[in-house]
Design a protein around this nucleic acid. Structure first.
Lengths: 338, 338
DNA sequence: TTGTAAGCGTTATCAG
DNA sequence: CTGATAACGCTTACAA
C-alpha cells in the first residue's frame, strides 16, 4: 500500500541499493543519480520505513530517557535540553518515567523495556544505589547520566559539594552561626546531589568551626510541601536557626511559605538559601546557587551522541562538571544582632 | 548474536509460529506448550526484537506526543499524565517538541517524522491555525488532542469560556467594575484556550453591563515575565483597573510581582485571578480556576488507546470537557470603597 | 559507481 | 492446536 524503496528504485531506473545509498547520503553515488533519486522520492512522497531500516541495520535511531519525575521543574527542564539535541540529531526520544508517581499505575522496571529498542540511554538523577539503575547499567549499552555519579559511566553534573559550600559560606559570611539544613530524605536511596550537598554543608560549617546538629536538620523530600513542613519543624525547636540552607529551590519555596505563616520575614528574621535557579526563585526573591539545568540536558545528550560514534575505550568517564553561580537576593541578609 | 525466536523455538521443540503466538498470549495455544515456551524464553533471556515485530505486523507500538513546550508547568504536567497511561499500556512514548524554544536549534516540522513511525499522535495545545498542526492532521492517523479544538478530531479540554467567566464573575461579584485582562499574544496563532478565555471574559463583563476596553488589555505571552510587563503596562494607565483577570497562573505570578514592585498589595490594592491551578498558586495565595492538568493528559492518552482499537466511525469526535474549580485565595478581595 | 542477493527477526496465512 | 513459509522493507557485503 505505501510507497517502498522498490517503487522509488523502479521509477528512478536504479536498484534499491542505490536508492538506499543515495537517500542516506552515503559516498560513492553519482551526483546526477543522487539528484534524480531525490527528485523521484519526493515526487512519490516516499518515506523510509524505520522498522525495516532498523531491522536491517541493527540501529534503532532512538535514545531512551529515564527519569524519576517528568513534571518537576528540574527534570522537565533537563528533558527539554535533551530533546533539543536529540531532535537536531534526528534521533527519536523515548520517554520513560520510573517511580509510581501520583498516577497509581504500577510502573514496570525500565531495563527490560530497553533491550533491542534503543541505541543508548540517558538517565536523569536516579539514586546510585537504586537497583533499577544497576539493571539498566548492566545492559551495557551506551549511557550518559545527569546528576548521578557512579564510577565508570559518563555523566554531567555540577559540583554539588562546592555548590552547598558556597551557599553555606554565604550564610556564614553574613554572620550566621546557627544554621539549619533542609535535606531530601533520611538516607534510603540518596541522590548524588543529596549526598554531596550534605557534605558540602558540613564542610563549610566545620571549616568555620560551627556546629552541625541533627536538631537543625530536617527533611523536605525535594517538594514545596516538604520544605514547608521541614522549616516548620526547625522553627518549633527551642532554639531555632537564624539561617537555613535548603538543598533545592522548591524546598526553599516551602520554607519561605512556612516563614510567612509564622509571621516571619525572609532575610529579616531568618535567611534562606536554595540550590537550583528555579524559574520562580527570582520572583520569590530567593537567594540561590544557580545551575545551568537546560545545559545539563544538552551536554549529556551530546555526550551520548558522541559515544554512539566512538569506540568504547575512547569515552570520557570522568564526570563533566558545569559551573554554578550564587545569586544573592533578599531572602538572605546579615544576622541581626539584637 | 542475540537470542532470536528461532533459538527459543528449537529449545522448546516447537515452531517459531507457536512461540510467537504463545509469547503474545494469543488463543489456540496449549497451556502446557505455552508454559514450556515461557520457561524456555526466560531461561534464554529472550527479548523480542521490536523492529522485526513492527516490520512484520505493521504496528509500531508507539505514540508520538507533540508539544510546543516541554519544561513549562502545564505541558510537563500533561506529559506526565500521558506517560503514566502509555507506560501502563506498554506503548513507547516518542517526545517531539515544536517551536524553536531557547535552544537555538532549528526544529524540523513534525509531520514527516511521524509517518510510518507511530501508531497515533497526541497533540498538546497547539494553535488550531498552526500549519504544522494541519500537516499532522492530514496524515490521517489516530489523533487525540489536549486543549485544542478543531472540528472532527477527538480532544480533551476544560470549558475555557466558562473558566474565564467564572474567574471574571468572581471579580465582578467582589464589586469590581474596572477589570483588566492579561491575555496571551496579539492574535497571530491563538491557542484555543486563548481564544475562548477572551470570549468568556467579554461575556461576563457584558452580561454585567461592564465595559471592556483595549486600554485595559495587555499581553503576557503566557510567561511570568510577560505577565509582569503586562501588569506594569496596565498600572501605568491614567486610570488603572482595580482587578485583573490573567489567562494563566504564570502570567498572574508575574502580575503579582509587578504589584509588589509598585508597592501594591494583591487583594488589597488590586485583585488578581488566574487560570491553571499551578503548583505555586497556593504558595503565592493566588485565586485561580483550577484545571485537572495531569488528568487532561491521562484522559487524552486513554482516548487515543481506545481509538487504536476501535473503528474510525465509532470514535467520539465531541470534545471531552473536564471540570474546573474556582479556588479563592487572598489575591482577590472586595473592592475597597474609599 | 551500481547491481545482485542474502539476510535482519518477526508475523500471519494457510494447511494439516 | 501446531507447522511451513511467504511476506514485511530495508541494508550491506560482494560482484561487476
Amino acid at each position: 500500500m505505501a510507497i517502498t524503496i522498490r517503487d522509488v528504485a523502479e521509477a528512478a531506473g536504479v536498484s534499491t541499493a542505490t536508492v538506499s545509498r543515495a537517500l542516506r547520503g552515503l559516498p560513492n553515488v553519482d551526483p546526477a543519480t543522487r539528484d534524480r533519486i531525490a527528485t523521484v522520492a519526493s515526487k512519490l512522497d516516499y518515506v523510509i520505513s524505520p522498522s525495516a531500516s532498523r531491522l536491517a541495520s541493527g540501529r534503532t535511531g532512538s535514545i531512551a530517557v529515564i527519569t524519576p519525575f517528568i513534571s518537576r521543574w528540574f527534570f522537565a527542564t533537563v528533558l527539554s535540553g535533551v530533546e533539543s539535541v536529540l531532535q537536531a540529531a534526528g534521533m527519536d526520544l523515548l520517554l520513560m518515567s520510573v517511580t509510581d508517581a501520583a498516577s497509581g499505575h504500577h510502573r514496570l522496571p525500565p531495563a527490560p523495556r530497553l533491550r533491542r529498542r534503543v541505541d543508548g540511554v540517558l538517565i536523569i538523577a536516579m539514586s546510585p544505589s537504586d537497583p533499577q539503575l544497576r539493571d539498566v547499567l548492566n545492559l551495557g549499552m551506551p549511557t550518559s547520566m545527569i546528576g548521578v555519579n557512579v564510577g565508570g559511566v559518563p555523566s554531567v553534573m555540577i559540583d554539588d559539594v562546592a555548590a552547598a559550600r558556597i551557599a553555606t559560606q554565604h550564610l556564614i559570611n553574613l554572620g550566621h552561626t546557627r544554621i539549619g539544613m533542609i535535606g531530601g530524605s533520611p538516607a534510603e536511596l540518596p541522590f548524588t546531589a543529596e549526598f554531596d550537598r550534605e557534605n558540602g554543608f558540613r564542610q563549610a560549617m566545620e571549616e568555620s568551626g560551627l556546629e552541625t546538629t541533627p536538631m537543625l536538620e530536617a527533611f523536605g523530600y525535594f517538594t514545596i510541601q516538604g520544605g514547608e513542613q521541614a522549616m516548620t519543624a526547625l522553627l518549633t525547636q527551642k532554639n531555632p536557626p537564624t539561617a537555613v540552607f535548603a538543598m533545592s529551590d522548591e524546598m526553599a519555596f516551602g520554607a519561605l511559605r512556612s516563614l510567612r505563616n509564622h509571621g516571619l520575614k525572609p532575610g529579616v528574621d531568618i535567611s534562606v538559601v536554595g540550590v537550583d535557579g528555579h524559574d520562580m526563585s527570582e520572583h520569590l526573591e530567593l537567594t540561590t546557587v544557580v545551575q545551568p539545568v537546560f545545559d545539563l540536558g544538552r551536554i549529556a545528550a551530546e555526550a551520548l551522541l558522541v559515544q554512539l560514534r566512538t569506540l568504547p575505550q575512547d569515552v570520557n568517564l570522568e564526570p563533566t562538571r558545569v559551573p554554578t553561580q550564587l545569586v544573592v537576593r533578599s531572602s538572605t541578609a546579615p544576622l541581626r544582632t539584637v
